Amino acid sequence: MKKILVIIFINCFLYNCYSQEKVNDIIYFLPSNVSNILIKEIKDNDNNYLILDKEDSDTYIIYLDNSIENFWVKHTNRSVFFNGKLIPLYFVYDEYFSFAEEGKDVLKKLGTEDGIRKVSYTRDNVFNVKFKLNGEIVK
Rank of each mutant, 00 (worst) to 15 (best):
L14M: 15
S79Y: 08
Y28L: 14
N125S: 14
L89F: 05
I137S: 00
G84M: 06
K2N: 04
V119A: 03
N33S: 13
G103P: 03
V126F: 01
K43C: 09
D56K: 14
I87E: 02
S57G: 06
K85P: 10
F13Q: 12
L110C: 11
E41C: 10
F82T: 00
L38W: 09
I51H: 09
E41A: 11
L14D: 13
T112S: 15
N47T: 06
D124G: 15
D58N: 15
R78P: 01
G115L: 06
E95D: 14
Y60A: 00
T122H: 05
V138H: 08
N45R: 07
Y15G: 12
I26M: 12
N70H: 05
V73C: 11
T76C: 09
F71D: 12
V119W: 01
Y93I: 08
K132W: 03
V106S: 02
T59M: 06
F81H: 07
Y63G: 04
I61E: 00
T59H: 07
H75S: 07
I37E: 12
N36R: 07
E69L: 09
D56P: 10
K85V: 08
Y93W: 12
K74F: 12
T122Q: 09
F127I: 13
N70F: 01
Y96D: 08
Y93M: 14
G111R: 04
Y60G: 02
Q20L: 13
D105E: 14
P31F: 08
I61H: 02
E101V: 01
F91K: 13
K139S: 03
T76Y: 11
E113T: 14
N125P: 10
Y96N: 08
K104I: 04
K22P: 04
N45A: 08
F9S: 15
N24R: 00
L50Q: 03
D65R: 00
V73T: 03
V23Q: 12
Y49K: 07
K85S: 15
R78Y: 07
N66P: 08
L64W: 04
R123A: 05
I8C: 11
E136K: 15
M1L: 14
N36Q: 12
S67G: 08
S57W: 03
L14V: 14
I42A: 05
P31W: 09
D94I: 02
V92C: 09
E102Y: 08
I7Y: 07
K54E: 05
L38Y: 11
L86W: 05
D65N: 06
Y90L: 08
N128A: 09
F97A: 10
L107Q: 12
V106Q: 05
V23A: 09
Y90N: 03
F131I: 02
V138R: 11
N45K: 04
Y18M: 13
V34Y: 04
I26W: 06
Y60F: 15
S67D: 10
V138T: 10
K109P: 00
N16A: 13
N36S: 12
C12W: 06
W72T: 00
T59A: 03
K139G: 00
K22V: 14
K132Y: 00
N83E: 15
K108T: 04
L133V: 15
K104Q: 04
I10Y: 04
N45Q: 05
F82M: 07
R117F: 06
I62A: 00
F131K: 02
S19W: 07
I10V: 03
N125L: 07
N48S: 11
D53P: 03
F81A: 07
Y15K: 11
V73A: 13
D46H: 10
N70D: 15
F13A: 15
K139T: 05
K104D: 05
R123E: 08
E21I: 00
E101G: 01
